[in-house]
């Protein structure tokens, strides 16, 4: 009882200090709260409340409004094998695309940082260009390259004599993979570029002077230095990969979580199942982020 009274008193004291600060420290605390407040007001109305309502939606008995209680959606998710397939597809595909994009990102950042060539600023801008493109436009880019009228399709058809219709791969899983990589390489590169500028070139030169070649220098000196950046790039790219929807909606070749949510809503308005998938997805992303952030410093995490 007394501890509760004590807590109430502390709370009142803190609140009073926030509203009417007397010391400079209290004033600084009030400033911090005031500065963070607008963001949290938006986050509350645009994210926290909707997420809670979505959680409630997943156990609603009615599909059009939140009323009653039913665990049916969760039961369906746990028992029907299609949802396990969706989860598996989402994870392996995002992981593979992320690994590929981070490897390319390391190569590109390495080229940008270590070698001199003309129009470097222009090259950086061009590599960042796809960050601005919505997923549906990325899908169109893949159709332009690999679709039935695609540039690469026709090139291959020209050299092999095959039919473009058989060679087109835009709407296969490989085409979708290209779409993912198309939107993810720019993101991973931009994260890695930040770390690369901070690499200590003295250590690299020392390694070379002692007789190490390019690969050995990279593996033993550069890689440990850019490790935080690689981890950060992996975290951000993986999160982006999981969130991709427009590209899958157009190319349609793999049943991933975002597409499944859309299908649940579009066909039969299974709002409870859509809500449940959304909730699992959110919980997973949250857990993944906070666990993986332990492996790197937060200041290297940039989009």
């Amino acid at each position: 009882m007394s501890s509760q009274t004590h807590e109430t008193e502390t709370f009142t004291a803190v609140a009073t200090a926030l509203i009417r600060p007397e010391t400079e420290q209290e004033r600084e605390r009030r400033r911090i709260v005031v500065m963070c407040l607008p963001f949290f007001v938006l986050a509350t109305f645009a994210a926290f409340i909707p997420l809670v309502v979505m959680a409630r939606m997943s156990v609603s008995a009615d599909q059009f409004e939140n009323s009653g209680f039913s665990m049916e959606a969760w039961y369906t998710l746990a028992t029907e094998s299609v949802y396990l397939t969706v989860a598996w597809n989402t994870l392996w595909f995002a992981t593979l695309a992320t690994v590929a994009s981070v490897i390319f990102g390391v190569g590109i950042s390495h080229a940008l940082e270590k070698y001199e060539f003309p129009f470097k600023g222009f090259v950086v801008s061009m590599i960042s260009f796809p960050i601005a493109l919505p997923g549906i436009v990325v899908a169109f880019m893949i159709i332009v390259l690999l679709g039935r009228q695609g540039l690469l399709t026709h090139t291959v058809a020209f050299f092999t004599g095959g039919s473009p219709l058989d060679i087109a791969v835009a709407t296969t899983v490989f085409g979708l993979f290209c779409g993912y990589v198309y939107s993810l390489i720019p993101r991973s590169t931009m994260v890695l570029r930040g770390t690369y500028t901070e690499v200590n070139t003295d250590a690299e030169e020392a390694a070379r002077a002692l007789g190490a070649g390019s690969l050995r220098t990279f593996y033993h000196v550069t890689l440990p230095e850019i490790r935080p950046g690689v981890v950060a790039a992996f975290i951000l790219t993986f999160r982006s990969a999981l969130a991709i929807f427009g590209t899958v909606l157009v190319l349609q070749s793999l049943n991933v979580a975002t597409l499944r949510i859309d299908r649940e809503i579009a066909v039969g308005f299974n709002s409870q199942i859509a809500g449940a998938i959304g909730l699992i997805y959110f919980a997973f992303i949250l857990a993944f982020t906070f666990v993986s952030l332990r492996f790197t410093e937060t200041d290297v995490v940039e989009i």
Binding site: A46, V53, M57, F245, A274, G275, G278, Y281
Partner: peptide
């Protein structure tokens, strides 16, 4: 915080 499609459902 949340991907667009899930925020949309919410």
């Amino acid at each position: 915080l949340v991907p667009g499609i899930i925020l949309g459902v919410a």
